[in-house]
């Protein structure tokens, strides 16, 4: 299976000064769901469930973003939230690897990483993955489109 690698240091809304930040590698492997490339929105909510910021958007056409309804509701569908942190959609069975520069304060403080997924001709899947941000890292299995998602330093 092909591995799609987007090694980068993203300057996200959640990045901080280097001294108080860490590099986190986020690996997402998709199921062979038998469809076109998936749009994936990565975003974070705080302990109260309020939107804290977006980490990554896989998929370039903004007209489809409203199908990522969790992200769309949380962020108000504001495309400037993902400006500069957008990449290609991810094909079925492929793996997306992201290296993000995230603030220390996001970890072990009740923040939750969400991933929404949408594929043409197929059912939208908001909150396909929900995983708390912890220093120890996490590995979880997904749902319809995401097979596994893991992150760690």
């Amino acid at each position: 299976m092909k591995t799609l690698t987007a090694i980068l240091t993203a300057s996200t809304a959640l990045a901080a000064f280097p001294a108080m930040a860490r590099d986190v590698t986020l690996t997402t492997t998709l199921n062979a769901y038998g469809g076109d490339g998936a749009y994936l929105a990565y975003y974070v909510t705080d302990a109260s469930g309020a939107y804290a910021g977006s980490l990554w958007m896989a998929g370039g056409r903004t007209k489809y973003y409203r199908h990522l309804s969790g992200w769309s509701q949380a962020s108000g569908g504001d495309t400037s939230e993902v400006a500069g942190i957008t990449g290609a959609s991810v094909g079925a069975g492929q793996t997306l690897t992201l290296t993000l520069d995230l603030a220390d304060s996001l970890f072990d403080a009740g923040y939750v990483l969400h991933v929404d997924a949408a594929v043409e001709h197929m059912r939208d899947s908001a909150n396909e993955v929900e995983v708390p941000l912890t220093s120890a890292g996490q590995s979880v299995s997904g749902g319809t489109y995401i097979q596994t998602l893991s992150y760690g330093q």
Binding site: R61, T62, K63, R66, S72, Q73, G77
Partner: peptide, 14 residues
Amino acid sequence: ATFDLLPAAAGADY
């Protein structure tokens, strides 16, 4: 339409 060259409606606000 695919390339967003036409004035398309956004979804309803949440």
